[in-house]
Amino acid sequence: MSTADLSLPLAPSDEPLATGHSSYRVTRAGRHAPCYAEPDEIAQEIAVALEYNGISHATLLATPTDLEDLALGFSFTEGIIRSARDLYDLEIAETAKGFIIQATIASACVSELKLRRRSLAGRTGCGLCGIESLDEVRRTLQPLPAPTLAYDATAIAQAAQQLRARQPLHLLTGATHAAGWSSSAGDVLYVREDVGRHNALDKLIGHLLRTSVDTTGGIAIISSRASFEMVQKAAAAGMSVLVAVSAATTYAVNMASELNVMLAGFARDDSFTVYSHPEYLNTEEVSLE
Results as ranks from 00 to 15, higher is better:
residue 1 M to R: 01
residue 2 S to T: 12
residue 3 T to P: 02
residue 5 D to Q: 01
residue 7 S to I: 02
residue 12 P to F: 04
residue 12 P to R: 11
residue 16 P to S: 06
residue 19 T to F: 10
residue 20 G to W: 08
residue 22 S to F: 00
residue 24 Y to Q: 06
residue 28 R to A: 13
residue 29 A to P: 00
residue 30 G to H: 08
residue 35 C to A: 12
residue 36 Y to I: 00
residue 42 I to D: 00
residue 43 A to P: 03
residue 51 E to K: 10
residue 52 Y to T: 04
residue 57 H to F: 03
residue 61 L to R: 14
residue 61 L to H: 14
residue 61 L to F: 11
residue 61 L to A: 09
residue 63 T to Y: 12
residue 64 P to A: 10
residue 64 P to R: 07
residue 67 L to I: 08
residue 67 L to M: 12
residue 71 A to Y: 03
residue 72 L to A: 15
residue 76 F to L: 13
residue 77 T to Q: 03
residue 78 E to A: 13
residue 79 G to D: 10
residue 79 G to W: 03
residue 79 G to E: 09
residue 82 R to M: 09
residue 82 R to H: 12
residue 82 R to W: 04
residue 87 L to F: 13
residue 90 L to N: 10
residue 91 E to G: 11
residue 93 A to E: 15
residue 96 A to L: 14
residue 97 K to E: 15
residue 101 I to S: 05
residue 102 Q to T: 13
residue 103 A to R: 08
residue 105 I to N: 08
residue 108 A to F: 07
residue 110 V to L: 15
residue 112 E to F: 02
residue 114 K to T: 04
residue 114 K to M: 09
residue 120 L to H: 00
residue 123 R to A: 08
residue 123 R to Q: 11
residue 124 T to W: 01
residue 125 G to T: 11
residue 126 C to Y: 02
residue 127 G to I: 00
residue 127 G to L: 00
residue 129 C to N: 03
residue 130 G to V: 05
residue 131 I to V: 15
residue 136 E to C: 03
residue 146 A to Y: 07
residue 148 T to S: 14
residue 149 L to H: 14
residue 153 A to Q: 13
residue 156 I to E: 06
residue 160 A to Y: 10
residue 161 Q to V: 11
residue 162 Q to S: 13
residue 165 A to F: 08
residue 166 R to H: 15
residue 166 R to C: 14
residue 168 P to T: 10
residue 169 L to N: 11
residue 171 L to Y: 04
residue 171 L to W: 09
residue 172 L to E: 11
residue 179 A to T: 10
residue 179 A to E: 13
residue 181 W to Q: 05
residue 181 W to E: 06
residue 181 W to L: 07
residue 182 S to K: 03
residue 186 G to I: 09
residue 186 G to K: 08
residue 188 V to T: 09
residue 195 V to W: 08
residue 195 V to M: 02
residue 196 G to K: 03
residue 201 L to W: 04
residue 204 L to N: 09
residue 206 G to M: 05
residue 210 R to G: 10
residue 211 T to P: 02
residue 213 V to R: 10
residue 213 V to K: 07
residue 216 T to A: 12
residue 220 A to W: 01
residue 220 A to N: 04
residue 221 I to S: 02
residue 223 S to N: 13
residue 225 R to F: 12
residue 227 S to D: 15
residue 240 S to G: 14
residue 242 L to I: 04
residue 242 L to M: 08
residue 244 A to Y: 07
residue 244 A to L: 09
residue 249 T to H: 10
residue 253 V to G: 03
residue 256 A to H: 07
residue 263 L to E: 06
residue 264 A to C: 14
residue 266 F to K: 04
residue 268 R to W: 04
residue 268 R to E: 11
residue 269 D to V: 01
residue 273 T to K: 04
residue 274 V to N: 02
residue 276 S to N: 05
residue 276 S to A: 14
residue 279 E to D: 13
residue 280 Y to P: 02
residue 286 V to R: 13
residue 286 V to P: 02
residue 288 L to F: 07
residue 288 L to Y: 03
residue 289 E to N: 05
residue 289 E to Q: 06
